[in-house]
Design a protein around this nucleic acid. Structure first.
Lengths: 419, 419
DNA sequence: AAATCTTTGTCAAGACTATTGACGTACTTA
DNA sequence: TAAGTACGTCAATAGTCTTGACAAAGATTT
């Protein structure tokens, strides 16, 4: 996982006395980041430190602007607690998402609040370098517009289409006409952004957004399923993003559901995506709605009670559910979040999906609950997830925050974002 | 995961000065346990400690008998290194495995070497309590026979048939006639063994044995597939055992491979196990080999070139491979280890399995390599895995080792193993 | 309304640990 | 044989955290 991150950690000699202080600073900061606002005595208990030590460290952190006092609830016996919290404005996380025809940029504060966001449609044929230019342009505007300090951006989570090779950070899609094919994305973004960068597959970022601030909050074993042109999964296993040996985990669309089915460009027959992807849905309804129908049209018609549309969406749910049933047997997730454009069909699709899981999965595992993506983010989900990924998984985030506010540090470098 | 472990950790105030020494002791010990023998300067670099500190700590650890000097390779420039290693005999890990007709007991030293092991066939109808009695009896004999110190056993990894509920440690098989159904195994073994206990599914323990000392050594994302009466997987994801939301992850046998296939007791139709489980194999060959044929007979016949047997085993491989292809798309493992009784068929089965994966999985993920289980452990694999699980995943093992050798500690308690 | 209880946050003194810098040692290379 | 290199150890120093005591702030009881 760390392969995707810049590893210029502050080489503090962990274990030494000098760094013991630093380590404890980071520990308290991490506690505040994870568990939310608390008071000093509680922190002391959690971190197994004395109240005295916590006091001195908190004083330092407050002087650095990383921690602020809130007015919390004056509950409980004894003297009133002085509630402390991480200063959400102390730093910013950046999320970028590149889909085949859009570029999205998102900035979150430390509390996952949206600071700013923007998106722009791009020509599907646009090259990758130009796409980065678009993102840089959007980012520059947001920074200028909101008067942000570049030095306070603690990392960028970047979503790209296709699998990302974990070891190298190269986009290794097998389709040669994809703009990102074989681009060493980790390096490129590193070079352009001068930030710790995490490259991730689009769907995986949507999963992250749902897992940390959407319908999957607090779930350790989560499966996010994106139903759109392709069908893919983003897995959160044991509370962490799972990527697979080479970063290719999550492909669902090419699961065979019908050995004698139609041929697929992938080389097999009867793949799920041929029956349940958006092109298949539109194809099936072409006689009914005409050749120019869009997903919007189908969803609208289904919502209005059109039987044919309802039927096709129900089939999508049923077939997807059958595949998910097997995967539930294998992975036993606690929750499945269904997202992507088709998921907006709602219960017309979800109900048959649930039924299929209950029917085809084993007793214990079919207790999984299946919910629609909760975010009204739509296409922005990927970029939101990118920022969330940084806030949750960037190694040494607390360390970076302390570093960022080092009293005797040289003035922030220019940190060029453009080329 | 920690739910399965006894949590009586030494409540040292981590972060305090007193425990800083302890923490560093444990860190060096952990380094030695994980990375194998090294010398002081190397340890200092790895742990970011000064050579001086490492020296003093190592002296203490040697006085406690946890670390010993070896004669290592005198390579490199400069003064010869004094190679250090964990004293393998400093502690013992216990593995227990309960299959439907056997009880296995295994003791490993800290270097995963076998100290002792034993097994006994039991009546399939035997109750769970009596099975524990059998295990306790075997264990007592081994302890007596080898003159072992009970106080040095640092934990027990226990394999049971069926899924184990992660939160409670209850065996939650849905079959009411299983001896372990609904037994609160974690509690029971805790009570009987007075040890940190990890309860795990049999197949998962076999996976652990392969992962840490067999054909899957060093692989972060590993899939172990057990082919015997049932068909199940044990997953090592991101280097750790994966259990799923309620501990039921790993079921492969009831993946539907044929919608119109025969009915299965699980309620579905055309499950893989109906076509590729041992009963199915024997059933298919009954006209050919007779009703009394065993797996041994089939394997022997296939090895001798019997076309019918070869064909059936090849079919098992092909069908299993088709299912694994989908799972590779989802999980993108680095290696698949095939174990269980049927895996002993060798290439007759593995070759079609590989072919199916290459044919049905996507480009990137089908580079997975597929190997047979390397251990000549046979049925003992589960017990070996139990001990390995303790050595690799027991939280605070290093801590326990230090604790164990505390200079001023009260004499080891009787630690009754029987009732 | 006063007294008591409980818990929080701070202060000063003391205990402990790890580092620094220097030294002797042991082995390799020229 | 001499120089070079890296390892392991020693004494002195600097730094951090804890202990124990105390004032502060609110809740509860009398």
């Amino acid at each position: 996982m760390s392969g995707l991150y810049d590893r210029r950690m502050p080489r503090t000699k962990s274990g030494s006395l000098q760094s013991l202080r630093r380590a404890n600073q980071e520990r308290l900061l991490t506690l505040l980041l994870r568990k939310g606002p608390t008071h000093r005595a509680e922190l002391a208990r959690r971190a197994d430190l004395s109240r005295t030590t916590v006091s001195t460290i908190v004083t330092e952190l407050m002087a650095r602007g990383l921690v602020v006092e809130q007015d919390g609830d004056p509950d409980g016996d004894g003297r009133a607690k002085e509630t402390l919290a991480v200063n959400p404005g102390a730093a910013v996380a950046l999320g970028l998402d590149f889909t085949f025809d859009h570029v999205w940029v998102h900035l979150s504060d430390l509390a996952h609040n949206e600071i700013a966001g923007a998106g722009r449609a791009v020509d599907p044929d646009l090259g990758w370098a130009e796409r980065i230019d678009v993102a840089a342009d959007l980012l520059e505007r947001l920074i200028a517009e909101h008067g942000l300090d570049r030095g306070r951006i603690v990392g960028a989570g970047v979503g790209l289409p296709g699998p990302i090779e974990k070891a190298t950070g190269i986009v290794s899609t097998s389709l040669p006409d994809q703009p990102w094919s074989h681009v060493h994305a980790a390096d490129e973004f590193q070079r352009r952004l001068r930030l710790p960068v995490a490259i991730e597959n689009n769907t995986r970022l949507e999963a992250v957004a749902e897992a940390y601030s959407g319908a999957g909050r607090g779930i350790r074993d989560l499966m996010y399923v994106g139903l759109s042109n392709g069908i893919a999964a983003g897995l959160i296993l044991d509370g962490r993003v799972f990527r697979g040996a080479v970063g290719a985990a999550g492909e669902l669309g090419h699961t065979t559901i019908n050995v004698d089915g139609p041929a697929c460009p992938c080389g097999n027959r009867g793949c799920l995506v041929l029956h349940a992807g958006i092109p298949a849905v539109l194809g099936a309804l072409r006689p009914h709605l005409g050749a120019k129908a869009t997903v919007e049209d189908v969803l609208a018609a289904a919502a209005a009670g059109d039987r044919a549309c309802e039927g096709v969406l129900a089939d999508v749910g049923q077939m997807t559910g059958r595949v998910l049933a097997s995967l539930c047997n294998l992975l036993n997730p606690e929750r499945i979040v269904v997202g992507g454009e088709l998921a907006r069909a709602g219960e017309v699709l979800l109900d048959p999906l649930r039924t299929a899981i209950r029917r085809y999965a084993l007793t214990l595992v079919r207790e999984v609950d299946v919910v629609p993506a909760a975010l009204d983010l739509g296409a922005r989900a990927g970029a939101v997830g990118g920022a969330a990924l940084i806030l949750r998984e960037r190694p040494g985030l607390a360390s970076a925050l302390v570093e960022l506010t080092e009293p005797a540090r040289k003035p922030a470098e220019p940190a060029p974002i453009g080329r």
